[in-house]
Design a protein around this nucleic acid. Structure first.
Lengths: 263, 263
DNA sequence: GCGGTGGTTATTGTATACAAAACACGTCCG
DNA sequence: CGGACGTGTTTTGTATACAATAACCACCGC
């Protein structure tokens, strides 16, 4: 399975109660490259972290002011960050432009994984033709790390997720289709947030590692059909893992129509 | 072929040279529904129309100030409109956040159509299972209009494009996959802008009508595989029509690296 | 009681001023 | 002559004030 792509960047300054333009504590940034210099980027990361932290209930209403306070920047960059998160389907707007934490029904999740499977199988097929020898070696190395993370008595889920994300990113990168990458970015981020309290079974994690092994084999053999097939089963299993967590039938539904009062 | 989805909404107030907060001329709006009440929507439509109008060269740099003047609103809503257009791949940003009119190489176009084919074939397949009798009738009716538009001595390309867009939208709607619709919206808008001066050959238009006829037949027969196959050839032909217009090899390339000076 | 109606508050949308960054270009020093 | 460097200019980014809209709620007439 594949609960990939956890938060790509940790948040820098969260929770400073905005005291009129306080200069953000960025002494000693890595001198070569000013990381996260834009307030909208910081806001994006902070809001995302906030959503992932589990302090937020799916379907809950958020206001831009709230988020501005949480992130410590003004509403202008918050609005920009919110737009990005809307695109990634982590936030949704009601018909009257009020903002809610996205809530995913089982059907929504299935739809998402179906689309993701379609696109990422395509990516795997293309990657099988185009991966350089070095990239294949890199995949193998990443997957060794992934296996190390899950082989111990108690698996290191965070490290697993990082390695998993890196693995899939190499494939998408190698597919050489920038628009495909953009589309997938949008689909991949959403399910991560879902049920953050969920604990991954070690069996799931190890099966994922085996899938990745087989993908590497398919790539090494330069067999696009094989790669596509493995990726397909890999992602389909991911769907069932998620679906198991959320329940059998249509459980929760989209946020905006429902009122946030009873959340 | 399928050069669908022309500009969905005409612009309301374009070109008023922003004279410090002049109240927008919205006396006598349709009383039931305030259309385009948001400045950012007007800006979006205006910029889009501007791009489609052919007054703009692919690869050219744009500034937010410029666009604010063109649209008659301040930079804030312009920025929001620009974000939308970036998502639809009509505008791109350089690595230093400068804004350019997207420029599409032949390879870019092929990539785009490949992705679109993948997604829209899926939509057709699903639609074949889910279209109501009324929707199939609607498709037939739309396509009759489309044929009427192209059967005359000189075809009405605008009407053709409208009908074509409506046709594909019914299918996507019937596929019952909102995220799929969002993804496609993003892919479909981009190529429209390309080479707006292009004239469509009547043969192309008529072949398109025949494709649509066959799609309706596949839907009526409730044959998902047939629908998928027809949609596939329909879109692949569209690609070649576009590719023919832009030239054989890698002609133009992405904008941001190149300087706009020689444009 | 019930549905509408007014005012009140909460929330989003827009304009504007200013800050930060990127760019263009001329200068200086090697 | 060439490349680092500064400086003025352009362009994007952010904060803030205010406007417009939607939600809320209490009131009233029926």
């Amino acid at each position: 399975m594949c609960f990939c792509h956890l938060t790509p960047l940790a948040v820098g300054t969260a929770g400073t109660h905005k005291e009129t333009h306080e200069r953000s504590p960025f002494f000693l940034v890595p001198p070569d490259r000013q990381v996260m210099s834009r307030a909208s980027d910081r806001a994006y990361a902070a809001i995302r972290a906030h959503l992932l932290s589990g302090q937020v209930v799916a379907g809950e209403q958020l206001t831009e002011d709230q988020l501005a306070q949480i992130t410590g920047v003004s509403r202008t960059p918050v609005r920009e960050a919110v737009r990005r998160l809307e695109n990634e389907l982590l936030l949704v707007r009601s018909d009257t432009k009020r903002l809610f934490v996205a809530d995913w029904s089982r059907d929504d999740i299935e739809e998402l994984f179906t689309l993701r499977q379609m696109l990422e199988c395509h990516a795997a097929e293309r990657a099988a033709r185009r991966l350089s020898r070095e990239q294949i070696a890199a995949l193998d190395s990443i997957n060794r790390d992934l296996k190390a993370a899950v082989d111990g008595a108690l698996p290191d889920v965070g490290r697993f997720l990082d390695a998993n994300r890196a693995f899939h990113e190499v494939i998408i990168e190698a597919a050489g289709s920038p628009r495909l990458g953009q589309l997938l970015a949008r689909l991949v981020e959403a399910p991560v947030v879902l049920r953050t309290a969920r604990t991954y079974s070690q069996d799931d994690l190890r099966q994922s590692a085996r899938d990745h092994d087989e993908l590497v084999a398919a790539f090494a053999a330069r067999d696009p059909e094989w790669a596509r097939a493995v990726m397909g089963s890999h992602l389909r299993r991911a769907f069932h893992t998620f679906a198991r967590a959320v329940g059998p039938a249509g459980t929760t539904d989209q946020a905006p129509p429902s009122d946030a009062k009873d959340a």
